[in-house]
Amino acid sequence: MINFAITHEVIDVQHLIESVKDRNCGAVCTFMGTVRELTDGKKTLYLEYETYQEMAEKMLEEIGNEVLEKFQCSKIAMVHRVGRLDIEEVAVAIAVSAPHRKASFEGCRYAIDRIKEFVPIWKKEYGEDGANWVGCNCLRKEG
């Protein structure tokens, strides 16, 4: 079973965990990506996330299917928040249940790695000296 979403609301992590619990599972592994204040000594004030929602939700579902197929996992839930997020807020949360802990760790790690690599979501960092898009450092006006 896969439960996935892109949301503008605060992520209810406990609800996510409850949604993957299973009487035949002895492990629930969770991951939360949170907004960090300091990056390489530079202070972030807040972040703005943007997404291509239609595609991002499809990809979350695909990743969820991959996790259930590749690892011995039973259920997975993934939510990514977009819009403005302040320091310490949860940007992404993943919960994976499995009969045994090893599979739940592996499945959870695979899911966040795939999200960070492929899912069309972008963050703009607002710092003390302006704003810039992360991951798009090559996007500068040439000449």
């Binding site: 999200i115 960070k116 690599e117 492929f118 979501i121 972008w122 963050k123 991951g135 798009c136 090559c138």
Partner: peptide, 8 residues
Amino acid sequence: LIPPVSGG
């Protein structure tokens, strides 16, 4: 057009 992503 999908620029390098930076979710998570």
